[in-house]
Design a protein around this nucleic acid. Sequence first.
DNA 1: AACCATAAGTTACTTTATGTAACTAACTTT
DNA 2: AAAGTTAGTTACATAAAGTAACTTATGGTT
Lengths: 101, 101
Amino acid sequence: MKESLLCPRLSKAMELIGKRWTALIVYQLIDGAKRFNEIESSLPISGRLLSERLKELEKEGIVERTVFSEVPVRVEYNLTDKGFALKDVVGGIETWSKEWL
Amino acid sequence: MKESLLCPRLSKAMELIGKRWTALIVYQLIDGAKRFNEIESSLPISGRLLSERLKELEKEGIVERTVFSEVPVRVEYNLTDKGFALKDVVGGIETWSKEWL
DNA sequence: AACCATAAGTTACTTTATGTAACTAACTTT
DNA sequence: AAAGTTAGTTACATAAAGTAACTTATGGTT
């Protein structure tokens, strides 16, 4: 990998957003918390990858995971402030898609 | 691949933006045309992938390619209106990165 | 004429990411 | 005790990305 003169924060943001499914997962959570299966059903993503992405997003502080010890167990995911701050970005993609695709 | 209830235009936009390097290439062209080597130097991307991405973006009507028959040949890439319309999206990612990363 | 330089790629090959489908853990209802 | 539910995980196949050397076209230099 070459070194770059690119701002490392921009670079990291681009790596996050420019990773398959990430923006769509954030988009799914904009209107409020969802559980694992709800996200899985609303996107053509597999459980394997959804699980992987949610872990990454949790580690980045973009998504928060809450376990409810019911039977069967319920797990909810919602956006942190950091994640919710991406609303304009994903909204912008949506707007662009409506106008240009 | 599962079927989705997702808007196909949003889905396609997310596939474009959520593809490695795409948003960064658009970002590099926001301020005006650049040639192949300029983009290559300003991003940690290889010639192989840059060439591939530029072809995709040209096919999508986001980027325009102009050949100048000088010696050695000069090739410039610039955004179409459709591509320039992504300014707010990539700008939004930049803003978010400055505030949250 | 043979040789070097440059821009813009392309090719061959390796490594990493993604897709698919079957499986597991924990607990409840039948 | 067998089956159902949610939230995953595992093992394996395929596709995408990374790396480095090579190509093509043209003109200038020795």
